[in-house]
């Protein structure tokens, strides 16, 4: 067997040679002082490198880094899981409260706004493709449905009187807060499940 190549020598040191090749190299090393010396030199070099003294890190290194870490947590994903449902709940609660407090005026305001929105959509539809017509339809349906919901709420409000309205407003607020807390708890539990 000819003398070892450098890559063969390093593969031998790494223990990466197939068993048959290793036997051949062992046999050659037993016969060849030059290759034995070459092996010894590279082995010593690797050992010296592996035991190089570590960089002396200051004790407060982690604290120094933490002092520069922004106070706000990395929360990008949380906005979608908590922020949006919370925002939606707030809007619904706000509308409900406004209706209970101002009664008919808010209904008519909503209807006027809805009508204006509808006509604006109709104008825009003249220039838009067929797909946008679906949007208009959806908008009209939402307006009708919300109008009916608000009508029902109005009749309820008339039935219960001013005291009842106050009680209903308080009840709506409690429902929203409880809902928010339940949402948060659900997310917390799902995070704990992920941890396991």
């Amino acid at each position: 067997m000819p003398c070892l190549t450098v890559d063969r020598l390093y593969n031998y040191l790494d223990g990466a040679l197939p068993p048959k090749d290793k036997v051949e190299v062992d046999r050659h090393l037993a016969e060849c002082p030059a290759c034995r010396r070459a092996l010894e030199v590279r082995k010593r070099l690797a050992e010296a490198a592996e035991h190089l003294p570590p960089f002396a890190a200051p004790e407060n290194f982690a604290a120094c880094v933490m002092a520069k870490v922004p106070a706000a947590a990395v929360k990008k994903r949380r906005l979608w899981t908590i922020g949006l449902p919370a925002a939606a709940a707030t809007v619904v609660a706000g509308l409900g409260l406004a209706f209970l407090l101002w009664g008919q005026s808010i209904v008519s305001a909503l209807q006027k706004t809805g009508a204006a929105f509808g006509s604006y959509l109709q104008d825009a539809l003249n220039y838009a493709a067929k797909g946008l017509k679906l949007l208009s339809l959806a908008g009209k349906i939402i307006i009708t449905v919300s109008g009916r919901v608000l009508d029902t709420l109005q009749s309820v409000a008339e039935m219960v009187g001013p005291d009842g309205r106050a009680v209903l407003a308080g009840g709506a607020l409690v429902i929203v807060i409880t809902g928010g807390m339940l949402l948060r708890r659900r997310q917390f539990l799902s995070e704990r499940t992920h941890d396991k």
Partner: peptide, 23 residues
């Protein structure tokens, strides 16, 4: 470059130096 034949006939400082000097 790494596939050259090994040719270590001469004495080597790597073998002669103390560990700390070598490091």
């Amino acid at each position: 470059e790494c596939f050259l034949q090994v040719a270590d006939e001469t004495a080597s400082v790597v073998r002669e130096l103390e560990l700390k000097e070598l490091q």
